[in-house]
Simulated scan of single mutants.
Amino acid sequence: MDSPLDVTTTGGVQVWTLNQTETGNAITDLSFVEAIERAVDEANENLEVRAIVLTGAGKHFSSGGNVKEMADGQGMFGLDERAQRRAYIAGIQRVPRALSRLEVPIIAAVNGAAVGAGCDLAMMCDIRIASEKAFFAESFVQIGLIPGDGGSWFLPRAVGYERAAEMTFTGDRVDAATALEWGMVSRVVGLDDLLPAAHELAARITKNPSHSLRMAKRLLQESRTSPLDTVLGMAAAMQPLAHRDPEHQSRLDRWRSR
């Protein structure tokens, strides 16, 4: 059986590839949850990793939940209400919690369909690039469900409340051009250009010192929910650490020698 998440490292860039093409890269299996947690922990430990590209194998980015298992009442989908609630907490909800503690900038390279939990997975990333063939759908209501994986928290922060409400209440698709107009993605490129564009962006990120990148990401994440004074206090505590970093000193030395 293929690994649900393939991880490759080249220089300071890791590529995480969703690799369950037989299910459209569904991400509700516990094996994927555990794989994403391992990948996050290993990236956090490895200070040489400075950027991550997340993409999907085959024609889909991610189809989200395994609808066949839902229809057949398999696994967590066959449990009673109390057990299923616990299964969500102990299962798919571990993914947003893991990605929220990821210290490294992560770029979603959305190659195709990003549906349901797959759409939410893309929203959990720091930056999104889409191919012309990509589309997004917060499609839970169309099968009588709600976003159970944190989508109601991530999507409004990506596109604003009103557009998130439109996507959530209709379940309709948003094509790549509309996603760009809405600010859901930072750019749209041809499918063949998608990974090169993601790697080019990752290379621009990895030129920068590891410690300052990780602290800058933490400040951005904190700014989503914290008041200004809290973020300023964190910045005041972090900046002296950045000043003492040897990479900062080497950059200053290069600037002086220009």
Rank of each mutant, 00 (worst) to 15 (best):
V13D: 02
V231H: 04
L5K: 02
T170H: 09
P196H: 09
A236Q: 14
M215R: 14
R157P: 11
H248E: 04
S257V: 08
F140A: 12
V141H: 07
G118L: 02
I27K: 09
V7R: 09
I36Y: 02
W182D: 12
L145H: 13
G12F: 03
A179C: 04
L180D: 02
R258G: 05
V188E: 00
R187K: 12
A165W: 06
L228S: 09
A202P: 03
Q84P: 04
G148C: 12
D80S: 01
A98N: 11
R101C: 07
E162S: 14
A177I: 07
Q20G: 15
P96Y: 03
P209Q: 13
G183M: 11
A51D: 08
I92V: 15
I92R: 13
L54G: 09
A235E: 05
L219P: 01
V174S: 11
V185D: 05
A51I: 08
V189C: 01
A202I: 03
R256H: 15
A98L: 09
V185T: 11
R214K: 04
R50Q: 11
T230P: 00
H199Y: 15
R218L: 09
A137T: 00
P227N: 08
G64L: 07
P240V: 07
R101F: 03
M167Q: 06
V104I: 12
F140H: 08
S210Y: 11
L180E: 06
G148K: 06
D120A: 13
L228C: 07
A71T: 14
A51Q: 10
M238C: 05
M76Y: 02
T17R: 11
R86I: 10
G118P: 04
P96T: 04
G91C: 12
V104S: 03
Q249Y: 03
L191W: 05
G116A: 14
R251Y: 09
V53E: 08
F135K: 01
P4E: 06
W182T: 05
L79G: 00
A242P: 01
R251F: 10
R50M: 04
D72Y: 12
G11W: 03
V104E: 07
V159L: 06
H248P: 00
N111A: 02
H199L: 15
G75R: 06
E81N: 05
K207A: 07
A177H: 11
F136P: 03
Q221S: 07
Q74T: 10
L194A: 04
G11A: 05
L201I: 09
L228P: 02
E138K: 03
W153K: 14
A164I: 06
L194D: 01
P4W: 08
G171Y: 02
E103V: 00
G65V: 15
G75T: 02
D253C: 02
V115L: 11
Q74E: 15
N208T: 00
S139C: 03
E37R: 09
T178I: 12
G24M: 04
M123I: 04
S210Q: 11
T55H: 00
R218S: 09
A87L: 10
D80M: 01
E45R: 14
M1F: 12
A137H: 04
